[in-house]
Amino acid sequence: MLGISFAALASSLWANPNIDHRTISSYLFHPRILGGVGLTLMLTVVSMVVSTILGVLLAVMRLSKNPVMNAFAWFYVWVFRGTPLLIQVVFWGYLGLLYAQISLGVPFTDFTVFSVDTNTLVPAFTAGLLAMTLNQAAYSAEIIRGGMLSVDTGQHEAASSLGMSPAFTLFRVVLPQAMRVIIPPMGNETISMLKNTSLLSVIAVLELYTVATQISSQNLRQVELLVVVSCWYLFLTSVLSVPQYYLERHYGRGNARQQSPTPLGRIRAALRKTPIHAVSKGPQP
């Protein structure tokens, strides 16, 4: 039943005279679209990496006993998680309206080291990167904090009893174990990030969706270009789930008594088995 209704839906879309398949195929690998794909991927990777580092820092601050650090981390998460991402994107994009010049100097005096135009220092691309990274750091901080809390207190005690410093304990003992809990939700976050980069179209960053809307505003083939864009987003999310699988396996080591083989390993094992079967076709005992 499900299969039939799905097939019916697909064929009605396929046969729809309002969709021009030639436009889709000609724009799927169009240089401008490919440029957008590249920028989207770059924005996603850079902001995920930087926001994860910031997230670890915020999580450690939030768990520290120092009340100033703790309050700062709480405030950061409160602000960046509590306001819509779209508004943050626009805010960073329009920073030049708020502060026309950015200068480094001694506050409340006339002494300045340098002074630049805000729009020169923070072009649309940087503003977009900043918005995505700072927002993501707030979410990542909470995920990482949860992961760190999931590590047994006995691990902290064992590390302490061996004379490990708090920083060494964090990087060698706590975080590697927390990773097992952190990675699946971070995979989700990466996929959200990939799709949320389309919000940067409001500040004219030339990522995938912006490029597509620019093209469709010229040729008026909105639906076709949305199909093109969706294909790319689907492809990229599928690609991103591969490193997640291997990261999960890496940090899951030692957790199961025996790890199940990877899909590639299974194929290899199956290939290796075939000639053995061929040989054993002789007289059976």
């Binding site: 691990q155 005690e157 064992a158 009893s161 003992v173 590697p176 174990q177 080591r253 030692g254 957790n255």
Partner: peptide
């Protein structure tokens, strides 16, 4: 300089 052995071993599982 002071070693400790715990009831629940507390080996690093990773």
């Amino acid at each position: 300089g002071i070693g400790m052995v715990f009831q629940r071993f507390n080996l690093f599982p990773h």
